[in-house]
Design a protein around this nucleic acid. Structure first.
Lengths: 140, 140
DNA sequence: CTACGATCTAGAGCAAGGTCTAGATCAAGT
DNA sequence: ACTTGATCTAGACCTTGCTCTAGATCGTAG
């Protein structure tokens, strides 16, 4: 039951790159940095063979990175997961802290968005009318 | 009327730093990079004297930066404004493109947020019950 | 007048997060 | 067998966006 990852078909690094959006360089880099839970399988010839669960994990990594989690935190999280059961409280703390940061970021972005949208309107309206106001032209 | 900025009180770099949240280093850096519209006034002794309108501009810069606009775009925008009237269409395009990117970013963050929130729930629930499931423990 | 903190310039340094290169090997099509 | 394209490793290199340093100067409070 827990060997679910061993029966899926193996994926090459290029395929994983396509599926995750990470470059092959980044994939190797992540591996070196210890951002994968287990060691990646290799063919007899030495090529990496990713399992579907590797890909699942990487996709979570991508989400966490996209939302601004630094690699150091991601690494810490990976280590916790690698250690296995017993540290769920810390995992929870890590993720929940991050979620709060994401919330704050969304709020900040929304504020920025409204400032920008307002500026856009100013310009659009100005263009529609055709004459320069005191906008942001510091022509004294 | 257009000389509104000349009657406000002048601010030192330290004061501007407090008001904008940018470090004094960053303020000098921004100036070197051409991110200010006009040259900053100086005291006879050579210290910078910012006008309130310098500060207003910097605050817009901060918002644009916070929302992820690269310095290169910000510089371009500054140049357009510096050139004066006649290029409003390009300014509009620049800002509106950025607004769209911000919208996309907010959407992406919200998606991340929900993935993370879900994971947080999984851990929280797990902790509440006390036993390890197959979570993300790749213990085969 | 003397301190002391704030500012000045030029330029070096830094952290993050990859990206790219070189030179070799592997694998698949013809 | 030959060619072509994907992968391999190790390590150098890059970009962005500041940050920090050194050594000098300014300006204000005592």
């Amino acid at each position: 039951m827990t060997t679910a990852e061993t029966h899926g078909k193996a994926l090459s690094i290029g395929e994983v790159s396509e599926r995750t959006g990470l470059s092959v360089h980044a994939l190797r880099f992540y591996e070196r940095e210890g951002l994968l839970i287990g060691p990646v399988h290799r063919t007899p010839g030495g090529r990496r063979q990713y399992t579907p669960s590797n890909v699942d994990w990487l996709q979570i990594c991508v989400k966490l990175r996209e939302s601004g989690m630094p690699l150091s935190d991601l690494k810490r999280f990976t280590e916790l997961v690698r250690q296995g059961p017993g540290n769920e409280a810390e995992r929870l703390r890590l993720l929940d802290d991050h979620r709060q940061r994401v919330d704050a970021q969304i709020q900040a972005l929304e504020e920025c968005r409204s400032v920008i949208a307002w500026k856009v309107d100013v310009y659009a309206e100005h263009l529609a009318r055709g004459e320069a106001g005191g906008l942001w032209d510091p022509t004294p």
